[in-house]
Nucleic acid binder design. Structure first.
Lengths: 346, 346
DNA sequence: GTGAAAGCGCTAACAC
DNA sequence: GTGTTAGCGCTTTCAC
């Protein structure tokens, strides 16, 4: 007969809520209640619905659910520079895990550390109506996000604060960490300590910590040893060779991050004099190689960012919060070598 | 007057398509055409619409668009073990970049390398109606995905094939890569070569390549040197110590992956005899340390997976495809040391 | 080249 | 405890 459908036969496409409802002999709303786990359903009905859902291999459509619930998805965007950078991938791991515990999903997008890409990439995420935006800011200005905050999307900056935007942020205790490293070098007798890093927020902060520690110890700053021109490992390698070829050479080096560390270590490998070394950021094999580092916990940074996002979504217009995560100095030997007399006379 | 709204004033919430339409004095459909870039719009109308959209800070709602277009989003899911593993994060980077070029977004979920988590995590992705599923299979059975394929969701397995499911996959040339490494060790005079890895697809394949190379060279296999019990770096470290404490010790070691490499190197550091070493997977500082490795390109693996997904979505029921990515042996010294006479007599 | 009406799959509000 | 109605924001007909 025309219009006489066999409800037991699987429909050609994906089963919908209404298909389950028809098969179970209830209304769509009741199925909805069962699926979302509401309690206003009698056990027997629930049973029948679940059975029907299973038979039809029903999977609720979150797209439709999110749309109906106000156009905000249960998805959080993480926009960072490059997943190949272990720092970012560890932060992402922390975010993903913590989100999963809250039934949220992470979408990921990379700016390639290109300031010009940020707004475009962020825009694509916002069009997906993400629940909130976790961003490692790279552009010089984030004021374009003020409207989104206003409209209810939490914006959390990771690793560095936003420019021209009142947003929550999670950062490491960069100054304190660098100061602690320098104090350790000072305690081992060093007075000629170089900082090698680049020109960005975290390195500025670390350099500030370095300066502060030297100042407190009464050690005069040497401008030539405050290098902010090492972005890549190759840069760092070159800078170290330059420094060690100078008339007065440092006896200890503090590296601004793990990329710089790699270059510094490469340069120090071929150099006769002993130079004490401490790196910011831990890295693979640092323990095996006996490299002293200032470590931090990128996963925790991810978790704290998610915490801020969740908190912010229920207090949209409160004052911006900043979470500061402490660092740890891990002594492994390379920072504990005494000043090399060979490098003192030159 | 009641009902008299000023169309110039920003509405309290997010602007919708219809808001733009009202402000521009056109229908919703026309705005839709402009936003999605259709050509059947006169330049002057397009201009007015764009101006209105900009004034209202309109961002199209992809949730709604995707729902209307058939419940399939422009989002691709990547389900892997753990983002902290650099292999996975590099694959993810390749996926993300290639997707972005196609206007697609990546959602990421981790199984924690726990077989029991796979179906749950994958299910969450499918409820988001992802365009396709890129999966590093960890469970012993993926037959539960057959229905999803049938319903139009491409399933692409990464790094290893699926179990009990006809799905596309991208893998490395594991056998050939391991065979090449062993051949190199043989060429440098080694006859006692150990393989250290664990019991999983990639390691099985690499072990097969190792065996094949030995067989072809007429070197008898030594079962005790085919170790598949090293999952962590600590395992590998212990295994190496065991092997080198035996009555007959290997003069060369092939590691099944980068975790194993770390452990092997740690163990070899404290050992008097020279042992040649080749690792599978490159790692940070491997070049600095002069470690010979079999490398591959995880980013390319990600890109190839996306290619397969896109191809599959327009040929849903064709035969499964497998993309095999070649490996490269990178000689850096550690694999080129000759057999140590000290370890031959014992 | 443009518009009106219908509907994607789901849930909020309000019945009963 | 369960059903009905309406509508999230967009795009697909199909009309003009």
């Amino acid at each position: 007969m025309l219009g006489d459908e066999d409800p037991m036969r699987l429909p050609p496409g994906r089963a919908r809520l209404s298909d389950v409802a028809r098969l179970a002999g209830v209304s769509a709303k009741t199925v909805s209640r069962v699926i979302t786990g509401h309690h206003n359903v009698s056990p027997s009905t629930r049973e029948r619905v679940l059975e029907a859902a299973q038979r039809l291999r029903f999977r609720p459509n979150h797209l439709a659910r999110d749309l109906r619930q106000g156009g905000v998805s249960r998805t959080v965007a993480f926009v960072m520079g490059d997943l190949k950078n272990p720092f970012y991938s560890h932060v992402a791991a922390g975010i993903e895990r913590f989100l999963a515990e809250h039934g949220l999903t992470m979408v990921l997008a990379a700016t390639g550390d290109d300031p010009a890409q940020e707004a475009r990439v962020v825009g694509a995420m916002l069009e997906r109506r993400v629940h909130s935006l976790l961003l490692v800011p790279i552009a010089g200005d984030q004021s374009y996000l003020a409207g989104e905050q206003q409209l209810g999307t939490p914006v959390i900056c990771i690793d560095r604060p936003a420019h021209n935007l009142a947003a929550d942020s999670v950062v490491f205790a960069n100054r304190a960490g660098a100061a602690e490293a320098v104090q350790s070098l000072l305690a081992h007798g060093h007075r000629r300590i170089a900082f090698i890093g680049s020109a960005m927020y975290t390195h500025d902060e670390r350099l500030a910590g370095y300066r502060q520690a030297l100042l407190e110890a009464g050690v005069a700053a040497v401008p030539q040893w405050e290098r902010q021109d090492a972005v890549t490992a190759a840069d760092a390698e070159r800078v170290v060779r330059e420094l060690l070829a100078g008339p007065v050479t440092p006896t200890a080096i503090l590296a601004g991050n793990n990329r710089v560390s790699t270059g510094v270590l490469r340069a120090l490998r071929d150099v006769p004099q002993q130079v004490a070394f401490i790196g910011f950021d831990d890295f693979d094999l640092a323990d095996t190689l006996g490299v002293t580092v200032v470590t931090h916990d990128p996963e925790r940074m991810g978790r704290e960012a998610v915490s801020l996002a969740i908190a912010r979504s229920s207090d949209l217009y409160g004052p911006p919060l900043q979470t500061v995560i402490p660092t740890q100095l891990v002594l492994r030997g390379s920072g504990e070598v005494p000043p090399d007399p060979a490098s003192l006379v030159r």
